[in-house]
């Protein structure tokens, strides 16, 4: 993630959002792979980090992504009752729910983050998540308010 620090604003004034996705290995990553092999057109703005399970997605990953230059984040895993580890996504769902309202209270717009369930067969849905998120973040503009806060690293 440390490479993802370059500015996303171009001199021409057009803005290409940089979106970081955190996805689970078993459902969403496979679904994203299917979207790719099916050659479904998708915005090229999303970078994927694959984790074993949504239960492994510490919400600090999300803040770190914003710190290091992401304008938007996608968090996605298996549908309820489909988790490879049975309950990882149920645990994650509670944490995400609280996290979302917490950052909202701190003044960070939670619409910067898309939470979704995408199964291994839902290549189409993944492409929609990618395209919709890219469009939404494009409208919201760069998230310089957060990454621009005083920090030790640039």
């Amino acid at each position: 993630m440390s490479e993802a620090t370059t500015s996303t604003e171009t001199t021409a004034g057009t803005f290409e959002p940089r979106i970081q996705a955190f996805v689970c290995n078993w459902c969403t990553y496979t679904g994203a792979d299917l979207a790719g092999t099916s050659r479904i057109p998708m915005a090229p703005n999303v970078r994927i980090i694959r984790l074993p399970c949504t239960g492994r997605i510490d919400t600090l990953f999300i803040l770190k992504a914003f710190e290091r230059g992401a304008d938007g984040v996608i968090v996605s895993g298996c549908h309820p009752n489909d988790c490879h580890y049975a309950a990882g996504n149920f645990h994650a769902r509670r944490r995400f729910a609280v996290f979302r309202e917490l950052i909202d209270f701190l003044g960070l717009d939670p619409d910067r983050i898309t939470f979704s369930w995408v199964s291994a067969s839902e290549g189409k849905k993944w492409s929609e998540i990618v395209n919709d998120t890219t469009e939404r973040i494009r409208r919201m503009g760069p998230f310089s308010a957060y990454r621009g806060l005083a920090g030790r690293t640039p």
């Binding site: 919400t59 600090l60 803040l63 770190k64 710190e67 944490r95 609280v98 996290f99 917490l102 950052i103 701190l106 957060y146 990454r147 806060l149 005083a150 920090g151 030790r152």
Partner: peptide, 17 residues
Amino acid sequence: HTRANFAWHATRALHLA
């Protein structure tokens, strides 16, 4: 720094949820 402090307080609050 302010940005680090956001991360600290968001984390602390979530750990205490």
